[in-house]
């Protein structure tokens, strides 16, 4: 389409924005490191102090990458769900994926009491990741089973919400019977965290991210057809059940793996597609997907930069910051434009 040309500039602007946010994120933190040292460390040059080199290579760089993958992945998952369900309030977690992860983690941390063991002491961080991944995977299998049986896409959305309610009820019951320190540990997990990740974790997450992204790109045509609703999509030659299942698998891989490693991070997946639609006025997924990828990474880097409260010793929960930063922005955009472009 000839109009594709006019979207190149916004995409380039977003890409430049991403590079700026990336450097800003790595430069700012509790320890002040001059920008020249940050840059030379990243390109493999000399750094004035060895401790700075360590902070950048082993702490800030993995965290920035983590932020980018998390932001992009959740934003793409949100876009997929908004298009599939034709609902502006859909996000990456509407299928109950984060509820599944929460349930897995809750059973892992809080359920330990029932068995008389401290599971986190015995299995550590990888145990948490595994519990979250298992939880979201099981819920995903269930949703997939339902999706091939239930024809109505709206029913699927409501089933996802019900799964969410069920799991939060189970979590409440577990919390009631668990010890204070375990409860605290669960709550800290639910705050979300981008830091404290190994390069190995990032590698695993990156594979999942790429898999989800490939499925997403392969679904561009059905996604565009779905903008006309299920029935029109069928009359345009879309294999409805197959496309729907591929979109659900892509969302589950993205949201499930990210939740396993970073915890349930709210808001990004819901907000980024809306923010991007306000900036780039199109519904064409060929444009929206790259724009949402860039936008998700940018917003998450900004949130993380704020969360680490530059030059102080405090770190805020990332989950709180994403909402604190993003929600007012979306409200402001909507009030200004007075229309939810969707």
């Amino acid at each position: 389409m000839k109009t594709n040309q006019s979207y190149t500039i916004p995409l380039i602007v977003l890409a430049i924005g991403l590079v700026c946010c990336f450097f800003a994120n790595i430069s700012l933190g509790s320890v002040a490191i001059p920008f020249s040292d940050v840059f030379s460390s990243l390109v493999g040059g000399e750094v004035t102090k060895p401790s700075w080199e360590f902070i950048i290579q082993e702490y800030r760089l993995p965290k920035a990458l983590m932020a980018m993958i998390t932001g992009s992945g959740l934003a793409i998952a949100g876009l997929l769900m908004q298009t599939l369900f034709r609902n502006p309030l859909a996000g990456p977690f509407v299928l109950g994926i984060s509820s599944g992860a929460s349930l897995g983690v809750a059973l892992f941390i809080l359920g330990g009491t029932a068995l008389g063991i401290s599971s986190t002491l015995s299995f550590g961080k990888w145990g948490l990741i595994l519990a979250a991944a298992t939880g979201s995977f099981l819920v995903f299998l269930m949703v997939l089973g339902v999706a091939s049986r239930v024809r109505d896409t709206m029913a699927l959305l409501i089933i996802g919400l019900m799964v969410g309610s069920l799991t939060s009820a189970v979590v409440s019951v577990l919390s009631y019977f668990s010890k204070a320190e375990e409860l605290q540990q669960y709550i800290f997990w639910s705050f979300g965290s981008l830091g404290d990740v190994s390069w190995q974790s990032i590698q695993i997450l990156l594979y999942c991210f790429m898999a989800g992204l490939i499925l997403t790109v392969a679904s561009i045509k059905p996604l565009n057809a779905l903008l006309l609703g299920d029935t029109y999509a069928k009359t345009l030659g879309v294999k409805h059940t197959k496309s729907r299942i591929i979109i659900i698998i892509a969302t589950s891989i993205l949201a499930g793996s990210i939740t396993a490693f970073a915890g349930p991070i709210a808001f990004i997946g819901l907000a980024v597609p809306h923010l991007i639609r306000q900036v780039i006025s199109t519904s064409n997924h060929r444009i929206l997907i790259p724009a949402v990828l860039l936008g998700g990474a940018i917003l998450m880097l900004i949130c993380d930069t704020i969360a680490q409260v530059p030059l102080s010793e405090y770190t805020l929960p990332i989950n709180a910051v994403t909402a604190l930063v993003g929600a007012p922005v979306v409200i402001w955009l909507l009030v200004r434009k007075k229309k939810l472009l969707f």
Partner: peptide
């Protein structure tokens, strides 16, 4: 049908 009203006319017709 719940078609996306954010589509431009050109985008909508192109989907055909």
């Amino acid at each position: 049908q719940a078609i996306s009203k954010n589509l431009s006319v050109l985008e909508l017709v192109s989907l055909g």
